[in-house]
Computed example of a mutant assay.
Amino acid sequence: MLEDLQTPCLLLDESAVRQNIKGMADRFKQIGVPLRPHLKTAKSIDVARILEEHGADRWTVSTLKEAEYFSSHGLKDILYAVSVSPQKMERVMKLNRSGAQMSICLDSTEMANDLSTMTLDGPPPRVYLEVDVDGHRTGVKAGQQRAIDVARILANASNLEFAGVMAHGGGVSYSADSKQELEAAAEQERTHTLAVKGAILEAGLPCPHVSIGSTPTALFGTSFDGVSDVRAGVYVFQDVFQSNLGMCAMEDVAATVLTTVISHAPHLNRIVVDAGGLALSKDRSCATQSNDCGFGFVSDADGHMDPLIYVGGVSQEHGYITTRDGSPLPFELYPLGTQLRILPNHTCMTCAAYDGYHVINGEHEGAWWPRCNGW
């Protein structure tokens, strides 16, 4: 089957996806806290259906196009987890008018005031105050008066429903290099978010929900007391970066790029493939880790990884495979026309280059599962 595919293209190992989803679902069923899977990694209703099979009934997205796509397929309880802006509100309200239950987030009094004075046609959207738990991205810090000010505006707005607080522990956890550091990052995410909830309650304001999550903090958190739901997404596919963190084994990486050897360059000690920077992405997150994969580790078409080689460089449409230790490449093992698979640094970024997945290793082997790309 693979030999008939035009390369580069995206493969999805269904058996690995199912195992990854089941593992996280079973963990949180035992913990007793609902998962709110983040669909930004897969962007696929076919993958979301597997999540539903394991009990998922609420969702996270990173674009309004995702929200529209998944809502059209019947997924209704959706949190748009990127700070909202006024010009996006009509799309949010259109979703609510069509039967979705949209949640949005923000972190400023300015945006809270803007939204509270808008005329919003439809059921009031739920609004979360975003908390910055690790200096990673957006959000208010615990102890800031701004948290109370924003919460008061939202709680008093007649056209909005104040949902509570949310956070993404994606800073400290993604730089951790031990189980203890990951556990500490997860607990920091939980306690900092709960501290903001506590301050809001002390101010005499409601704070119904606490939503936290990232794949590392979800897998390594030792307590989820006080948490309403947990958001995680990359665990569905995994990648080399997550494997290096200890989230999974390399064989759990479900999405890989199928590529073809198109040239040999013995004088440069490299094999050239037709998957370059656009096909693999130029995310080099693993460069911060001891097990650096360059632009991706390499396996044969059957998924057997060669630990000696990696994609050491890319240009737009060319990938340059060489040895990790500088030893001579065994060119005879990789004749022109050979198909290889590349395991990505960051699966979300790599998958974004493709319209869909060629499914392998599962009940739907040979199927095409489309993705929802764009904004």
Rank of each mutant, 00 (worst) to 15 (best):
residue 128 Y to C: 04
residue 184 A to E: 15
residue 287 A to L: 13
residue 137 R to K: 12
residue 203 A to E: 01
residue 5 L to F: 03
residue 319 G to S: 05
residue 147 A to K: 08
residue 370 P to T: 01
residue 208 P to R: 13
residue 370 P to V: 12
residue 316 Q to G: 13
residue 149 D to P: 08
residue 16 A to I: 00
residue 79 L to P: 11
residue 181 E to W: 05
residue 172 V to E: 14
residue 64 L to K: 11
residue 8 P to H: 12
residue 353 A to H: 12
residue 290 S to V: 04
residue 330 P to H: 07
residue 276 G to V: 08
residue 365 E to L: 08
residue 123 P to T: 08
residue 15 S to W: 00
residue 222 T to Q: 14
residue 91 R to E: 11
residue 57 D to W: 07
residue 21 I to V: 10
residue 192 H to E: 15
residue 229 D to S: 13
residue 169 G to M: 13
residue 280 L to G: 05
residue 235 Y to L: 11
residue 140 V to W: 14
residue 217 T to H: 06
residue 147 A to C: 08
residue 86 P to E: 07
residue 44 S to A: 09
residue 209 H to C: 08
residue 14 E to Y: 01
residue 298 V to I: 15
residue 216 P to C: 06
residue 83 S to H: 05
residue 192 H to S: 15
residue 58 R to C: 13
residue 118 M to E: 01
residue 146 R to P: 00
residue 299 S to C: 13
residue 200 I to M: 04
residue 323 T to N: 05
residue 39 L to V: 08
residue 218 A to N: 05
residue 265 A to P: 00
residue 153 I to P: 09
residue 272 V to F: 09
residue 112 A to M: 03
residue 6 Q to S: 14
residue 293 C to T: 09
residue 148 I to W: 09
residue 149 D to A: 10
residue 118 M to V: 00
residue 280 L to A: 10
residue 188 Q to M: 15
residue 119 T to D: 11
residue 265 A to G: 03
residue 372 C to P: 06
residue 72 S to W: 07
residue 197 K to L: 06
